[in-house]
Design a protein around this nucleic acid. Structure first.
Lengths: 168, 168
DNA sequence: TGTCTTATTGAGACATAGACTCAACACAAA
DNA sequence: TTTGTGTTGAGTCTATGTCTCAATAAGACA
C-alpha cells in the first residue's frame, strides 16, 4: 500500500459489494442474491482461485436454494473483471483470478514446482512498458508479466514430491 | 539480430529440421515423415500461429497419405517446444506458437482490437526480472510479458470493424 | 536388402473449461 | 401488487486438447 492517497483510493471506502452494486446500476443490471453470495465469498479471503474451485466451494457452502450455478459463476466472474473488482491471469493455460479492487498493482513470480504465485511490485516495469509502447505509438491498457521459475522452498526440498494439485 | 556471435548462435548453421533431428536422436526418437512435413511447414514462414490453423493448413496441403493427423500435430508441437525450436505463448487464453530457434529474444505488444502481435526487445526487462528474483531468492527459468493495448493502425481506423478472426 | 523390434501414427473416443439456450423466476419500478 | 425485463439454473453444446489402441514404418542389425 502507498503512504498517500491517489484518486484511485478515494472509493476504497466502499466495500467490494457496494462497488459492484455501483457497477451493476450503471449498467442497468440487477443486484441479485447469487451475485451477492458470490461476491461475499470471493472477497472473504485474499487468495488466487480458479472458476472450478469457486464453483465447488459455493455448492458446498449452500446446497439448498442459495446455491449458485456454474453458468452464473462464469458470468459473474466476467462481470467482476469488467467491473474492475477482479483481475484474470492466465497461468500455464489456466484461468486464475485475484482481487484487483483496492489492491495495489503487482506482478507475479510463478513457481513451476509447487504452482504457487508470489507477488511483487516494480515501478520500473511500468516505465519500460510505457517507453516501449510510446516508441511504437501503441496505446497501453494493461499488461501481464509472469516470471517462471522455482521458489526458495522448492529449491531446498529439491526433488521431494510435494503438494501438486494444491492451490495455485 | 546481434552484431556478434554468442554461444547460442554457433548452431544456427543447422536448419530447423537438422536441429530437430539432433533433438530426436538425443531422445531416442525417430525422424518420421509426419514430423518432417510439419517442421518444414512451420518453418517455411515466420508467423505466429495456433494448433488449429496448423492442422487446417497441413490437411489442405497434403490430403493423401502425406497428411498429418490432429494428435500428431499436438504431439509434435509439444516436442518442438521441448526441443527449443518453438515458443508457446498464451494470448487471451489461447495457445499461440512462434519460432524460437535462431530467433532473438523478445516480448510482445498485443493489440486487443485486431489481435495482432508486435514484437519488441528490452534489455532492461531482463534486468528488472533478475533483480526481483534475486531479492526473493527465486531461480528464474523464463518469463512471459505481454503488453495489452491498441496498435497505431487500430487507433486510427477507430471503430471501423475489421479483421476479427484473422491471423493472430 | 530382408528381418525384426519398437516408436509412431491415425481414427476415434474421451476430457475439460467454458459458452449457449431457454423456460421459470425474481428484482425493482410504478 | 402488479408487471416488464433482467437473471437464473438445467442441460446442451463447442473448442481445445488428450488418450487408447491396432496398424504402420523407422532404423538397427544380420
Amino acid at each position: 500500500m502507498s503512504d498517500q492517497f491517489t484518486l484511485e483510493d478515494v472509493n476504497v471506502a466502499l466495500s467490494p459489494m457496494e462497488r459492484f452494486e455501483e457497477y451493476l446500476q450503471s449498467k442497468g443490471k440487477r443486484v441479485t442474491q447469487p451475485r451477492r453470495i458470490l461476491v461475499d465469498h470471493v472477497f472473504s479471503k485474499h487468495e488466487h482461485f480458479d472458476a472450478d474451485t469457486l464453483i465447488d466451494e459455493l455448492s458446498k457452502m449452500a446446497a439448498g436454494p442459495n446455491r449458485v450455478s456454474r453458468p452464473t459463476v462464469y458470468r459473474s466472474l466476467t462481470e467482476l473483471v469488467e467491473a474492475g473488482l477482479l483481475r484474470k491471469l492466465d497461468i500455464a493455460g489456466r484461468a486464475v483470478y485475484e482481487h484487483d479492487y483496492g489492491y495495489p498493482d503487482h506482478d507475479h513470480l510463478y513457481c513451476t514446482q509447487c504452482q504457487q504465485l508470489f507477488e511483487f511490485h516494480s515501478e520500473e516495469l511500468a516505465k519500460i512498458r510505457d517507453a516501449v509502447a510510446k516508441e511504437q505509438h501503441f496505446r497501453v491498457t494493461g499488461h501481464k508479466f509472469i516470471v517462471n521459475g522455482v521458489c526458495v522452498e522448492c529449491q531446498h526440498k529439491a526433488r521431494r514430491p510435494k503438494r501438486k494439485v494444491d492451490l495455485i
